[in-house]
Amino acid sequence: MASCIFCKIIKGKSSEIPCFKLVETEKSLAFLDINPLSRGHALVIPKVHGEKLTDIPDDFLTDILPIAKKLVKATGAEEYNILQNNGRGAHQEVPHVHFHMIPKPNQQEGLGIGWPIQKTDMDKLKALYEEIKDKL
């Protein structure tokens, strides 16, 4: 996509945003986030454009987690989040699939989240299980 900042970075055509490449493979690129939540916050992106995870061919996702794992080890992060958002409502800012590796060194730095648990209705949960299982 011509206007996608991550596609421009992949093609090496972005003077709009600096890119500190950490890892590059045939199918993926990892670089430091320019608006980090903590030291070592990095992004791993597939080299094919797709806004949501379901838009990316599986073969372009094969080295994403191994790269994220290498980043964890290289940064020395003992606690960290691997995060991937899909759509504006899910907090996706750049409409190109990307995975965050966010070190969590303390309570002030890194990803801060709430986890609004919903009350469970076991009958509804079983029906949902059956619905999803049938589609897999």
Rank of each mutant, 00 (worst) to 15 (best):
K73T: 15
L43T: 01
K13M: 14
K69W: 02
L111A: 02
F60R: 12
I117C: 08
P103A: 12
G110M: 05
L71N: 10
V97P: 03
C19T: 11
L136G: 10
S15I: 01
D55E: 02
L43S: 06
L32Y: 11
G40N: 12
T62H: 11
P103C: 11
N35V: 02
R88I: 00
D121V: 10
L61E: 07
H91M: 05
I117K: 14
G114L: 10
Q84M: 10
T62M: 14
S14R: 12
P57S: 04
D121G: 13
Q107I: 07
H49A: 03
E26Q: 15
T54S: 15
K8D: 08
H41K: 03
L32A: 06
E51S: 03
C4T: 06
Y129R: 13
P66I: 06
A2R: 13
I67F: 07
A90F: 00
P103K: 11
I82G: 14
E24K: 15
V94W: 11
K73S: 15
M1G: 08
E109K: 11
I117E: 13
L53V: 08
D121R: 14
I5Q: 07
F99T: 14
K133F: 05
C7P: 06
G87W: 00
H96R: 11
R88Q: 14
H49S: 02
P95M: 05
L111K: 04
P105N: 06
R88M: 06
I56N: 01
I9K: 12
K135R: 14
I45D: 03
I132Q: 05
L43R: 02
H49W: 03
L71W: 06
T120K: 12
R39H: 11
L29T: 06
I45S: 05
D63R: 12
L53Q: 02
V72Y: 01
I117Q: 14
M122K: 10
K11R: 10
L37T: 06
K8C: 07
I113F: 14
G76M: 09
P105D: 04
H100E: 08
A127S: 10
K47T: 01
L43I: 01
I117T: 09
L71M: 12
N81S: 05
L71R: 08
N85A: 13
H98W: 04
G50K: 05
S3K: 15
F99Q: 12
F99E: 11
D55R: 00
A2Y: 10
E26S: 15
I45F: 13
G114F: 09
F99L: 15
K135H: 12
M1Y: 11
V23C: 06
N86H: 00
L111Q: 05
V72G: 05
Q107F: 09
M101T: 10
L53D: 10
V48N: 04
K119T: 11
A2M: 13
D58T: 05
S14T: 12
L111D: 07
K27Q: 13
